[in-house]
Design a protein around this nucleic acid. Structure first.
Length: 490
RNA sequence: GGCGCAGUAGCCAAGUGGUAAGGCGGCUGUCUGCAAAACAGCUAUACGGCAGUUCGACUCUGCCCUGCGCCUCCA
Protein backbone atom coordinates (compact mmCIF):
# COMPACT_ATOMS: atom_id res chain seq x y z
CA UNK A 1 0.00 0.00 0.00
CA UNK A 2 1.24 3.44 -0.78
CA UNK A 3 0.31 6.74 0.66
CA UNK A 4 -1.35 9.15 -1.71
CA UNK A 5 -1.63 12.84 -1.02
CA UNK A 6 -3.65 15.52 -2.72
CA UNK A 7 -1.19 18.17 -3.83
CA UNK A 8 -2.61 21.64 -4.33
CA UNK A 9 0.28 22.44 -6.64
CA UNK A 10 -0.71 19.79 -9.17
CA UNK A 11 -4.36 19.58 -8.19
CA UNK A 12 -3.96 15.86 -8.17
CA UNK A 13 -3.56 12.95 -5.82
CA UNK A 14 0.06 11.86 -5.92
CA UNK A 15 2.09 9.10 -4.40
CA UNK A 16 3.90 10.48 -1.39
CA UNK A 17 7.65 10.18 -1.85
CA UNK A 18 9.63 12.43 0.47
CA UNK A 19 12.86 13.95 -0.77
CA UNK A 20 15.00 12.10 1.73
CA UNK A 21 13.15 9.22 3.35
CA UNK A 22 12.54 8.35 6.06
CA UNK A 23 12.85 12.02 6.90
CA UNK A 24 9.92 14.30 6.21
CA UNK A 25 10.12 18.07 6.50
CA UNK A 26 6.76 19.64 7.18
CA UNK A 27 5.89 23.28 7.67
CA UNK A 28 2.45 24.48 8.70
CA UNK A 29 1.42 28.10 8.90
CA UNK A 30 0.76 28.85 12.53
CA UNK A 31 -1.27 31.42 14.33
CA UNK A 32 -1.16 35.15 14.67
CA UNK A 33 -1.74 35.41 18.41
CA UNK A 34 -4.08 38.36 18.74
CA UNK A 35 -7.24 36.60 19.90
CA UNK A 36 -8.59 33.33 21.27
CA UNK A 37 -8.11 30.19 19.24
CA UNK A 38 -11.28 29.20 17.42
CA UNK A 39 -12.79 26.08 15.91
CA UNK A 40 -11.28 26.87 12.52
CA UNK A 41 -7.82 26.77 14.02
CA UNK A 42 -8.80 23.54 15.71
CA UNK A 43 -9.67 21.98 12.40
CA UNK A 44 -6.44 23.10 10.76
CA UNK A 45 -4.12 21.94 13.49
CA UNK A 46 -5.97 18.71 14.12
CA UNK A 47 -5.73 18.00 10.39
CA UNK A 48 -1.98 18.44 10.31
CA UNK A 49 -1.57 16.67 13.62
CA UNK A 50 -3.28 13.63 12.14
CA UNK A 51 -1.15 13.85 9.02
CA UNK A 52 1.95 14.06 11.17
CA UNK A 53 0.83 11.16 13.36
CA UNK A 54 0.01 8.98 10.39
CA UNK A 55 3.34 9.71 8.73
CA UNK A 56 5.08 8.73 11.95
CA UNK A 57 2.91 5.64 12.25
CA UNK A 58 3.96 4.78 8.71
CA UNK A 59 7.60 4.92 9.72
CA UNK A 60 8.60 8.43 8.72
CA UNK A 61 10.56 10.79 10.91
CA UNK A 62 8.73 14.04 10.80
CA UNK A 63 10.33 17.36 11.46
CA UNK A 64 7.31 19.56 12.04
CA UNK A 65 7.82 23.32 12.04
CA UNK A 66 5.04 25.74 12.88
CA UNK A 67 5.58 29.47 13.01
CA UNK A 68 4.13 32.07 15.30
CA UNK A 69 3.46 35.43 13.68
CA UNK A 70 4.06 37.59 16.70
CA UNK A 71 4.26 40.91 14.89
CA UNK A 72 1.27 42.00 12.86
CA UNK A 73 -1.26 44.80 12.35
CA UNK A 74 -3.92 43.17 14.47
CA UNK A 75 -1.56 42.52 17.36
CA UNK A 76 -0.39 46.12 17.19
CA UNK A 77 -3.96 47.39 17.08
CA UNK A 78 -4.89 45.35 20.12
CA UNK A 79 -1.81 46.36 22.07
CA UNK A 80 -2.53 50.03 21.40
CA UNK A 81 -6.15 49.61 22.39
CA UNK A 82 -5.24 47.82 25.63
CA UNK A 83 -2.13 49.88 26.37
CA UNK A 84 0.12 46.88 26.69
CA UNK A 85 3.06 45.81 24.58
CA UNK A 86 2.39 43.80 21.49
CA UNK A 87 4.66 41.21 23.00
CA UNK A 88 2.29 40.84 25.94
CA UNK A 89 -0.62 40.31 23.59
CA UNK A 90 1.29 37.73 21.59
CA UNK A 91 2.41 35.90 24.72
CA UNK A 92 -1.05 35.76 26.16
CA UNK A 93 -2.73 34.28 23.13
CA UNK A 94 0.14 31.97 22.31
CA UNK A 95 -0.21 30.53 25.78
CA UNK A 96 -3.93 30.16 25.31
CA UNK A 97 -3.36 28.47 21.97
CA UNK A 98 -1.15 25.82 23.53
CA UNK A 99 -3.61 25.13 26.32
CA UNK A 100 -6.40 24.54 23.90
CA UNK A 101 -4.28 22.45 21.52
CA UNK A 102 -3.14 20.27 24.40
CA UNK A 103 -6.76 19.57 25.20
CA UNK A 104 -7.34 18.56 21.60
CA UNK A 105 -4.37 16.23 21.96
CA UNK A 106 -2.43 17.99 19.22
CA UNK A 107 1.20 16.96 19.52
CA UNK A 108 3.68 19.77 19.83
CA UNK A 109 5.60 20.72 16.72
CA UNK A 110 9.35 20.13 16.68
CA UNK A 111 9.89 23.87 16.81
CA UNK A 112 7.74 27.01 16.94
CA UNK A 113 9.86 29.79 15.48
CA UNK A 114 8.69 33.32 16.15
CA UNK A 115 8.79 36.05 13.54
CA UNK A 116 10.34 38.58 15.90
CA UNK A 117 13.27 36.29 16.54
CA UNK A 118 14.17 36.06 12.86
CA UNK A 119 14.16 39.68 11.78
CA UNK A 120 17.84 39.69 10.80
CA UNK A 121 17.41 36.73 8.50
CA UNK A 122 14.37 38.35 6.92
CA UNK A 123 16.30 41.52 6.30
CA UNK A 124 19.05 39.63 4.57
CA UNK A 125 16.50 37.84 2.40
CA UNK A 126 15.01 41.16 1.38
CA UNK A 127 18.47 42.50 0.56
CA UNK A 128 19.01 39.39 -1.52
CA UNK A 129 15.74 39.83 -3.39
CA UNK A 130 16.61 43.46 -4.12
CA UNK A 131 20.06 42.39 -5.37
CA UNK A 132 18.49 39.84 -7.64
CA UNK A 133 16.10 42.40 -9.06
CA UNK A 134 12.90 40.89 -7.67
CA UNK A 135 12.05 43.77 -5.39
CA UNK A 136 11.94 47.54 -5.28
CA UNK A 137 11.82 50.23 -2.65
CA UNK A 138 8.97 52.68 -2.25
CA UNK A 139 8.16 55.46 0.17
CA UNK A 140 6.51 53.15 2.69
CA UNK A 141 8.47 49.98 2.29
CA UNK A 142 10.03 47.31 0.10
CA UNK A 143 7.87 45.37 -2.36
CA UNK A 144 8.19 42.13 -4.24
CA UNK A 145 7.71 42.61 -7.97
CA UNK A 146 5.33 39.96 -9.10
CA UNK A 147 5.97 40.53 -12.80
CA UNK A 148 9.59 39.52 -12.40
CA UNK A 149 8.62 36.06 -11.31
CA UNK A 150 7.43 34.13 -14.34
CA UNK A 151 5.75 31.35 -12.40
CA UNK A 152 3.58 33.65 -10.34
CA UNK A 153 0.18 32.01 -9.97
CA UNK A 154 1.31 28.41 -10.33
CA UNK A 155 0.09 27.37 -6.91
CA UNK A 156 -3.32 28.97 -6.86
CA UNK A 157 -3.98 28.71 -10.58
CA UNK A 158 -4.66 32.41 -10.73
CA UNK A 159 -3.21 34.36 -13.61
CA UNK A 160 -2.11 37.78 -12.56
CA UNK A 161 -3.45 39.36 -15.75
CA UNK A 162 -6.90 38.06 -14.88
CA UNK A 163 -6.74 39.35 -11.37
CA UNK A 164 -6.33 42.90 -12.51
CA UNK A 165 -9.79 43.00 -14.00
CA UNK A 166 -11.30 42.01 -10.69
CA UNK A 167 -13.12 44.34 -8.41
CA UNK A 168 -11.47 43.28 -5.22
CA UNK A 169 -7.88 44.22 -5.94
CA UNK A 170 -6.68 47.29 -4.16
CA UNK A 171 -5.85 50.12 -6.51
CA UNK A 172 -2.78 51.61 -4.97
CA UNK A 173 -0.93 53.88 -7.29
CA UNK A 174 2.64 53.46 -6.22
CA UNK A 175 3.01 49.75 -6.68
CA UNK A 176 4.10 48.56 -10.11
CA UNK A 177 1.47 45.85 -10.05
CA UNK A 178 -1.44 45.76 -7.63
CA UNK A 179 -0.43 42.23 -6.71
CA UNK A 180 3.03 43.30 -5.57
CA UNK A 181 3.29 42.70 -1.86
CA UNK A 182 5.23 44.18 1.02
CA UNK A 183 8.45 42.54 2.10
CA UNK A 184 9.24 45.32 4.56
CA UNK A 185 6.94 47.95 6.03
CA UNK A 186 8.41 51.19 7.28
CA UNK A 187 7.35 51.96 10.83
CA UNK A 188 4.66 54.44 11.66
CA UNK A 189 4.50 56.11 15.04
CA UNK A 190 3.70 53.76 17.90
CA UNK A 191 4.59 50.58 16.06
CA UNK A 192 7.19 48.07 17.12
CA UNK A 193 10.13 48.29 14.76
CA UNK A 194 13.55 46.96 13.93
CA UNK A 195 16.47 48.60 12.12
CA UNK A 196 17.03 47.86 8.45
CA UNK A 197 18.81 49.35 5.43
CA UNK A 198 15.47 51.05 4.65
CA UNK A 199 15.02 52.52 8.08
CA UNK A 200 13.09 51.35 11.09
CA UNK A 201 10.26 49.01 10.28
CA UNK A 202 8.92 45.49 10.35
CA UNK A 203 8.66 42.59 7.95
CA UNK A 204 5.69 41.97 5.70
CA UNK A 205 3.54 38.96 6.39
CA UNK A 206 4.79 36.47 3.83
CA UNK A 207 8.53 36.73 4.24
CA UNK A 208 8.64 35.12 7.67
CA UNK A 209 7.33 31.80 6.43
CA UNK A 210 9.90 31.63 3.65
CA UNK A 211 12.73 32.51 5.97
CA UNK A 212 11.78 30.34 8.90
CA UNK A 213 10.71 27.28 6.94
CA UNK A 214 13.94 27.18 4.98
CA UNK A 215 16.00 27.90 8.05
CA UNK A 216 14.64 24.87 9.88
CA UNK A 217 13.89 22.54 6.99
CA UNK A 218 16.31 23.50 4.25
CA UNK A 219 15.79 25.38 1.00
CA UNK A 220 13.51 22.67 -0.31
CA UNK A 221 11.26 20.42 1.73
CA UNK A 222 8.35 18.02 1.57
CA UNK A 223 5.12 19.38 2.94
CA UNK A 224 3.74 22.85 3.43
CA UNK A 225 0.29 23.12 4.89
CA UNK A 226 -2.30 25.59 6.00
CA UNK A 227 -5.91 26.59 5.65
CA UNK A 228 -7.46 26.91 2.25
CA UNK A 229 -7.66 30.65 2.73
CA UNK A 230 -3.89 30.87 2.83
CA UNK A 231 -3.47 29.42 -0.64
CA UNK A 232 -3.79 32.83 -2.18
CA UNK A 233 -2.15 35.19 -1.75
CA UNK A 234 -0.05 33.99 1.18
CA UNK A 235 1.31 30.73 -0.16
CA UNK A 236 1.56 32.03 -3.69
CA UNK A 237 3.66 34.93 -2.44
CA UNK A 238 5.79 32.71 -0.27
CA UNK A 239 6.53 30.50 -3.24
CA UNK A 240 7.42 33.42 -5.48
CA UNK A 241 9.83 35.05 -3.08
CA UNK A 242 11.43 31.79 -1.97
CA UNK A 243 12.06 30.39 -5.41
CA UNK A 244 13.25 33.81 -6.53
CA UNK A 245 15.66 33.96 -3.62
CA UNK A 246 17.03 30.41 -3.61
CA UNK A 247 16.69 29.69 -7.31
CA UNK A 248 15.63 26.17 -6.35
CA UNK A 249 12.43 24.71 -7.76
CA UNK A 250 10.19 23.42 -6.44
CA UNK A 251 10.51 24.95 -3.03
CA UNK A 252 7.82 22.66 -1.61
CA UNK A 253 7.03 19.21 -2.97
CA UNK A 254 3.51 18.78 -1.57
CA UNK A 255 1.12 21.57 -0.70
CA UNK A 256 -1.74 20.54 1.57
CA UNK A 257 -4.71 22.77 2.39
CA UNK A 258 -7.53 22.06 4.79
CA UNK A 259 -11.13 23.15 4.28
CA UNK A 260 -13.07 25.51 6.48
CA UNK A 261 -15.36 25.17 9.40
CA UNK A 262 -18.71 26.67 8.49
CA UNK A 263 -21.67 27.72 10.50
CA UNK A 264 -24.94 27.71 8.65
CA UNK A 265 -22.94 26.93 5.54
CA UNK A 266 -20.89 30.07 5.89
CA UNK A 267 -17.24 30.31 6.72
CA UNK A 268 -16.46 30.96 10.36
CA UNK A 269 -15.29 34.52 10.48
CA UNK A 270 -14.83 37.42 12.75
CA UNK A 271 -16.56 39.85 10.48
CA UNK A 272 -19.69 37.73 10.38
CA UNK A 273 -19.48 37.29 14.13
CA UNK A 274 -20.25 33.61 13.79
CA UNK A 275 -17.11 32.11 15.22
CA UNK A 276 -16.71 29.90 18.24
CA UNK A 277 -13.65 29.90 20.37
CA UNK A 278 -12.47 26.46 21.29
CA UNK A 279 -12.81 27.38 24.92
CA UNK A 280 -16.51 28.08 24.34
CA UNK A 281 -17.00 24.80 22.56
CA UNK A 282 -15.25 22.90 25.34
CA UNK A 283 -17.84 24.24 27.76
CA UNK A 284 -20.36 22.06 25.99
CA UNK A 285 -18.32 19.23 24.54
CA UNK A 286 -15.33 17.20 25.55
CA UNK A 287 -12.26 18.03 23.45
CA UNK A 288 -12.05 14.45 22.22
CA UNK A 289 -15.63 14.70 21.01
CA UNK A 290 -14.67 17.83 19.11
CA UNK A 291 -11.72 16.00 17.67
CA UNK A 292 -13.87 13.09 16.53
CA UNK A 293 -16.33 15.54 15.01
CA UNK A 294 -13.50 17.14 13.05
CA UNK A 295 -12.23 13.74 11.96
CA UNK A 296 -15.61 12.63 10.68
CA UNK A 297 -15.22 14.71 7.52
CA UNK A 298 -12.39 14.59 5.02
CA UNK A 299 -9.95 17.40 5.73
CA UNK A 300 -10.42 19.11 2.38
CA UNK A 301 -14.21 19.30 2.60
CA UNK A 302 -16.02 22.02 4.44
CA UNK A 303 -17.44 20.96 7.78
CA UNK A 304 -20.52 22.52 9.24
CA UNK A 305 -20.61 23.25 12.94
CA UNK A 306 -23.82 22.38 14.70
CA UNK A 307 -24.67 21.27 18.20
CA UNK A 308 -26.66 18.42 16.72
CA UNK A 309 -23.62 17.04 14.94
CA UNK A 310 -21.40 17.57 17.96
CA UNK A 311 -23.94 15.66 20.01
CA UNK A 312 -23.85 12.85 17.44
CA UNK A 313 -20.08 12.80 17.74
CA UNK A 314 -20.42 12.64 21.50
CA UNK A 315 -22.61 9.54 21.24
CA UNK A 316 -20.21 7.95 18.80
CA UNK A 317 -17.18 8.72 20.94
CA UNK A 318 -19.04 7.34 23.95
CA UNK A 319 -19.48 4.04 22.16
CA UNK A 320 -15.76 3.67 21.59
CA UNK A 321 -15.07 4.47 25.21
CA UNK A 322 -17.77 2.09 26.35
CA UNK A 323 -16.25 -0.70 24.34
CA UNK A 324 -12.90 -0.20 26.03
CA UNK A 325 -14.58 -0.07 29.42
CA UNK A 326 -16.41 -3.30 28.72
CA UNK A 327 -13.18 -5.01 27.72
CA UNK A 328 -11.45 -3.71 30.84
CA UNK A 329 -14.28 -5.12 32.89
CA UNK A 330 -13.91 -8.53 31.31
CA UNK A 331 -10.17 -8.46 31.86
CA UNK A 332 -10.51 -7.60 35.53
CA UNK A 333 -13.48 -9.85 36.17
CA UNK A 334 -12.56 -13.25 34.81
CA UNK A 335 -15.36 -15.80 35.02
CA UNK A 336 -15.39 -18.60 37.54
CA UNK A 337 -12.41 -20.91 37.20
CA UNK A 338 -14.57 -23.83 36.23
CA UNK A 339 -13.00 -23.68 32.85
CA UNK A 340 -9.99 -25.70 31.79
CA UNK A 341 -6.77 -24.41 33.29
CA UNK A 342 -5.30 -21.46 31.49
CA UNK A 343 -8.51 -20.68 29.75
CA UNK A 344 -10.37 -17.70 30.91
CA UNK A 345 -13.19 -16.07 29.19
CA UNK A 346 -16.84 -15.46 28.99
CA UNK A 347 -19.67 -17.80 29.61
CA UNK A 348 -21.45 -18.43 26.45
CA UNK A 349 -24.66 -16.50 26.41
CA UNK A 350 -26.84 -18.40 24.03
CA UNK A 351 -27.70 -21.83 25.33
CA UNK A 352 -25.69 -24.41 23.53
CA UNK A 353 -24.72 -27.69 25.04
CA UNK A 354 -23.10 -27.25 28.37
CA UNK A 355 -19.41 -27.80 28.70
CA UNK A 356 -18.86 -26.96 25.08
CA UNK A 357 -17.24 -23.62 24.86
CA UNK A 358 -15.92 -21.90 21.86
CA UNK A 359 -12.56 -20.64 23.01
CA UNK A 360 -11.10 -17.81 21.09
CA UNK A 361 -7.36 -17.55 21.01
CA UNK A 362 -5.07 -14.64 20.54
CA UNK A 363 -3.55 -15.75 17.26
CA UNK A 364 -6.94 -16.29 15.67
CA UNK A 365 -8.12 -12.89 16.71
CA UNK A 366 -4.95 -11.26 15.54
CA UNK A 367 -5.61 -12.69 12.13
CA UNK A 368 -9.25 -11.74 12.15
CA UNK A 369 -8.53 -8.21 13.23
CA UNK A 370 -6.16 -7.69 10.33
CA UNK A 371 -8.81 -6.77 7.74
CA UNK A 372 -9.98 -3.91 9.92
CA UNK A 373 -6.46 -2.63 10.37
CA UNK A 374 -6.04 -2.90 6.62
CA UNK A 375 -9.23 -0.97 6.02
CA UNK A 376 -8.00 1.70 8.39
CA UNK A 377 -4.64 1.95 6.64
CA UNK A 378 -6.18 1.93 3.19
CA UNK A 379 -8.40 4.83 4.16
CA UNK A 380 -5.54 6.81 5.65
CA UNK A 381 -3.28 6.00 2.71
CA UNK A 382 -5.90 7.55 0.48
CA UNK A 383 -5.15 11.17 1.23
CA UNK A 384 -5.71 10.82 4.97
CA UNK A 385 -9.34 9.77 4.76
CA UNK A 386 -10.09 9.99 8.45
CA UNK A 387 -13.82 9.42 7.95
CA UNK A 388 -13.06 6.05 6.40
CA UNK A 389 -10.54 5.33 9.14
CA UNK A 390 -13.10 6.03 11.84
CA UNK A 391 -15.53 3.71 10.08
CA UNK A 392 -12.89 0.98 10.22
CA UNK A 393 -12.62 1.45 13.97
CA UNK A 394 -16.37 1.02 14.38
CA UNK A 395 -16.28 -2.05 12.17
CA UNK A 396 -13.54 -3.47 14.35
CA UNK A 397 -15.54 -2.81 17.50
CA UNK A 398 -18.59 -4.45 16.02
CA UNK A 399 -16.55 -7.49 15.09
CA UNK A 400 -15.05 -7.74 18.57
CA UNK A 401 -18.41 -7.53 20.26
CA UNK A 402 -19.82 -10.16 18.00
CA UNK A 403 -16.87 -12.40 18.67
CA UNK A 404 -17.24 -12.00 22.41
CA UNK A 405 -20.88 -12.86 22.05
CA UNK A 406 -20.07 -16.04 20.17
CA UNK A 407 -17.51 -17.51 22.50
CA UNK A 408 -14.99 -17.14 25.22
CA UNK A 409 -12.01 -14.97 24.82
CA UNK A 410 -8.72 -15.49 26.53
CA UNK A 411 -7.42 -12.63 28.59
CA UNK A 412 -4.65 -12.13 26.06
CA UNK A 413 -7.25 -11.98 23.43
CA UNK A 414 -9.23 -9.32 25.23
CA UNK A 415 -6.08 -7.30 25.66
CA UNK A 416 -5.35 -7.59 21.98
CA UNK A 417 -8.81 -6.34 21.09
CA UNK A 418 -8.40 -3.38 23.36
CA UNK A 419 -4.92 -2.60 22.13
CA UNK A 420 -6.06 -2.81 18.54
CA UNK A 421 -8.93 -0.39 18.96
CA UNK A 422 -7.07 1.99 21.22
CA UNK A 423 -4.04 1.80 18.97
CA UNK A 424 -5.95 2.90 15.89
CA UNK A 425 -7.63 5.67 17.85
CA UNK A 426 -4.22 6.81 18.96
CA UNK A 427 -3.09 7.15 15.35
CA UNK A 428 -5.93 9.62 14.93
CA UNK A 429 -4.98 11.28 18.19
CA UNK A 430 -8.18 10.15 19.88
CA UNK A 431 -7.54 9.46 23.52
CA UNK A 432 -9.75 6.73 24.88
CA UNK A 433 -9.95 6.82 28.63
CA UNK A 434 -11.82 4.41 30.78
CA UNK A 435 -14.24 6.70 32.56
CA UNK A 436 -14.84 4.17 35.29
CA UNK A 437 -11.16 3.95 36.11
CA UNK A 438 -11.12 7.70 36.22
CA UNK A 439 -13.94 7.72 38.72
CA UNK A 440 -12.09 5.04 40.63
CA UNK A 441 -9.07 7.31 40.70
CA UNK A 442 -11.15 10.17 41.93
CA UNK A 443 -12.46 7.98 44.75
CA UNK A 444 -8.94 7.07 45.79
CA UNK A 445 -7.89 10.69 45.63
CA UNK A 446 -10.87 11.53 47.80
CA UNK A 447 -9.83 9.01 50.46
CA UNK A 448 -6.29 10.32 50.40
CA UNK A 449 -7.51 13.85 50.92
CA UNK A 450 -9.61 12.66 53.81
CA UNK A 451 -6.63 10.85 55.32
CA UNK A 452 -4.41 13.90 55.03
CA UNK A 453 -7.02 15.90 56.86
CA UNK A 454 -7.23 13.23 59.56
CA UNK A 455 -3.44 13.23 59.97
CA UNK A 456 -3.42 16.95 60.30
CA UNK A 457 -5.94 16.61 63.09
CA UNK A 458 -3.85 13.88 64.59
CA UNK A 459 -6.74 11.50 64.07
CA UNK A 460 -4.35 8.66 63.34
CA UNK A 461 -6.95 6.05 63.99
CA UNK A 462 -8.96 7.26 61.04
CA UNK A 463 -5.91 7.80 58.85
CA UNK A 464 -4.70 4.27 59.52
CA UNK A 465 -8.13 2.95 58.74
CA UNK A 466 -8.00 4.61 55.37
CA UNK A 467 -4.54 3.28 54.69
CA UNK A 468 -5.78 -0.20 55.59
CA UNK A 469 -8.83 0.19 53.48
CA UNK A 470 -6.78 1.20 50.45
CA UNK A 471 -4.27 -1.54 51.04
CA UNK A 472 -7.05 -4.08 50.97
CA UNK A 473 -7.87 -2.84 47.52
CA UNK A 474 -4.28 -3.21 46.47
CA UNK A 475 -3.43 0.43 46.69
CA UNK A 476 -0.19 1.40 48.35
CA UNK A 477 0.35 4.86 49.65
CA UNK A 478 3.53 6.68 50.42
CA UNK A 479 3.78 9.87 52.43
CA UNK A 480 6.38 12.25 51.11
CA UNK A 481 7.15 15.80 52.03
CA UNK A 482 5.46 16.81 48.77
CA UNK A 483 2.27 15.02 49.69
CA UNK A 484 0.86 11.55 49.48
CA UNK A 485 1.52 9.43 46.43
CA UNK A 486 -0.34 6.26 45.62
CA UNK A 487 -0.04 3.40 43.23
CA UNK A 488 -1.90 0.26 42.48
CA UNK A 489 -0.02 -2.93 43.21
CA UNK A 490 0.78 -4.80 40.04
C1' G B 1 -15.17 39.62 -13.88
C1' G B 2 -11.25 35.55 -12.97
C1' C B 3 -10.17 30.92 -10.37
C1' G B 4 -11.99 26.79 -7.57
C1' C B 5 -15.08 23.38 -4.46
C1' A B 6 -19.54 20.88 -3.25
C1' G B 7 -24.81 18.68 -3.91
C1' U B 8 -25.22 10.60 -1.44
C1' A B 9 -31.00 8.14 3.32
C1' G B 10 -34.67 12.13 8.66
C1' C B 11 -29.46 14.47 9.93
C1' C B 12 -23.91 14.06 9.32
C1' A B 13 -20.62 11.54 6.07
C1' A B 14 -17.13 7.84 3.11
C1' G B 15 -16.95 5.55 -1.54
C1' U B 16 -16.48 2.43 -6.36
C1' G B 17 -17.40 1.99 -14.13
C1' G B 18 -20.91 -3.37 -12.59
C1' U B 19 -25.86 -1.92 -8.79
C1' A B 20 -24.36 2.08 -1.91
C1' A B 21 -18.76 2.26 4.49
C1' G B 22 -19.57 4.38 9.11
C1' G B 23 -21.93 7.62 12.87
C1' C B 24 -26.45 10.05 14.89
C1' G B 25 -31.68 9.37 14.94
C1' G B 26 -35.82 5.92 14.34
C1' C B 27 -38.00 0.93 14.69
C1' U B 28 -37.65 -4.08 16.72
C1' G B 29 -35.33 -7.44 19.95
C1' U B 30 -32.01 -9.17 24.23
C1' C B 31 -31.22 -8.08 29.26
C1' U B 32 -34.33 -6.26 33.53
C1' G B 33 -39.50 -7.06 38.74
C1' C B 34 -40.46 -2.48 35.70
C1' A B 35 -37.74 1.20 33.55
C1' A B 36 -33.29 3.43 32.15
C1' A B 37 -28.67 2.32 30.30
C1' A B 38 -26.12 -1.00 27.40
C1' C B 39 -25.79 -4.43 23.53
C1' A B 40 -27.90 -6.73 18.95
C1' G B 41 -30.85 -6.70 14.33
C1' C B 42 -33.34 -3.65 10.76
C1' U B 43 -33.48 1.09 8.55
C1' A B 44 -31.15 4.65 0.55
C1' U B 45 -34.28 0.04 -6.19
C1' A B 46 -30.82 5.05 -4.65
C1' C B 47 -26.44 9.04 -5.02
C1' G B 48 -29.22 17.75 -7.51
C1' G B 49 -31.52 17.98 -12.88
C1' C B 50 -31.15 16.96 -18.22
C1' A B 51 -28.52 14.90 -22.13
C1' G B 52 -24.21 11.95 -23.88
C1' U B 53 -20.15 7.98 -23.75
C1' U B 54 -20.62 2.67 -22.28
C1' C B 55 -22.89 -3.99 -22.40
C1' G B 56 -23.46 -1.21 -17.79
C1' A B 57 -22.66 5.43 -14.37
C1' C B 58 -23.91 7.51 -8.42
C1' U B 59 -18.92 6.98 -10.28
C1' C B 60 -16.57 9.56 -17.08
C1' U B 61 -18.10 14.01 -20.57
C1' G B 62 -21.23 18.37 -21.58
C1' C B 63 -24.94 21.71 -20.19
C1' C B 64 -28.19 23.47 -16.33
C1' C B 65 -29.86 24.38 -11.24
C1' U B 66 -28.50 25.18 -6.12
C1' G B 67 -24.99 26.23 -2.21
C1' C B 68 -20.05 27.67 -0.82
C1' G B 69 -14.94 29.51 -1.02
C1' C B 70 -10.54 32.42 -2.86
C1' C B 71 -9.17 36.96 -5.58
C1' U B 72 -8.75 42.20 1.26
C1' C B 73 -6.80 40.11 7.22
C1' C B 74 -8.06 35.02 8.01
C1' A B 75 -6.87 28.03 9.70
Amino acid sequence: MTLKVHNTLTRDKEEFIPRDPPKVGMYVCGITPYDETHLGHGRAYVTFDVIRRYLEYSGYEVNYVQNITDVDDKIIAKSNANRVTSNAIAEKYTQSYFEVMDKLNVKRASVYPKATEHIDEMVSWIVGLLDRGYAYVLEDGVYFEVDKFADYGKLSGKRKEEQEAGARIEVKGAKKNPLDFALWKKAKAGEPSWPSPWGEGRPGWHIECSVMSTKYLGEQFDIHGGGLDLEFPHHENETAQTEAFTGKVPWVKYWIHNGFVNVNKQKLSKSLGNFFTLKDVFEKFDPMVVRLFLLSTHYRSPINYSDVELAAAREAYGRIVKFVEDIDFLITHPPAPSLPAGRQGLKKRGGEEEGEVNVIEREDIDEELAPYRDKFMAAMDDDFNTAGAVAAIFDMIKFCRKTLDDGEAEKECLKLMKESVVGLCEVLGLKIENRKLKIENRRVEGLIVEREAARKNKDFKRSDEIREQLAEQGIEIEDTRYGTKWKAQA
